[in-house]
Simulated scan of single mutants.
Amino acid sequence: MTQVQPSSSAYAALLLRVSLGIMYIAHSLILKAMTFTLAGTAQYFESLGLPAFLAYATFWAELIGGILLVLGVQSRWVALALLPVLFGAAWVHIGNGWVFSAQGGGWEYPLYLIVLSVAQALLGDGAYALKPSRPLSLAPASLKAAA
């Protein structure tokens, strides 16, 4: 029996999935927990008019989502589920300008991560995923029936 080798696009999706997952893990653990602390992050959320509990929910969403992405567990859906966190980050930084090195951070990095997360959802899990996602169905049911 011949073993099927993953295509280069499967490896590309793997690389995207793992790097995106590591970014989410680092953003939760290093930035929110270790640099600003969770209490400090909660205070920052409150200063924006957001409830403090949302900081903790964001921390856990990024940490768990990042781990799931690295492992390849339902990566399409995890990437899509993390989009609200990224849209929130873009909203928070929109008044600071484009460059993330600007005081308070810019909005280009959250926007870039939105694009990467959507690309991950479209590409799928890639090679070596523990629990691959079902494919996204972008075509209307009427077009599928005609095919």
Rank of each mutant, 00 (worst) to 15 (best):
T2M: 13
Q3N: 10
V4D: 14
Q5R: 15
S8A: 15
S9C: 09
L15H: 07
R17V: 06
K32A: 04
K32H: 06
A33N: 10
F36W: 15
F36Q: 13
A39T: 14
A39K: 13
T41I: 11
A42F: 06
E46N: 12
S47A: 14
S47D: 12
L50W: 14
P51I: 00
P51M: 00
A52N: 03
A57K: 02
T58H: 05
F59R: 05
W60K: 08
W60F: 15
E62D: 12
G65F: 02
G66C: 05
L68R: 03
L69A: 05
L69S: 07
V70F: 08
G72R: 01
S75W: 08
W77I: 04
W77Q: 10
L80N: 03
L82K: 02
V85W: 00
F87L: 13
F87C: 10
G88T: 05
A89V: 01
A89I: 00
A89R: 00
A89E: 00
A90D: 00
W91C: 02
G95I: 04
G95V: 03
N96W: 01
G97L: 03
G97A: 06
W98S: 11
F100S: 12
A102I: 00
Q103M: 12
E108S: 13
Y109C: 07
Y109T: 09
Y109A: 10
P110E: 00
Q120K: 11
Q120D: 08
Q120W: 02
L122W: 03
G124H: 01
G126W: 09
L130V: 10
L130Y: 08
P132S: 01
P132A: 08
A139M: 11
A139C: 05
A141N: 11
K144H: 13
A145D: 11
A146F: 06
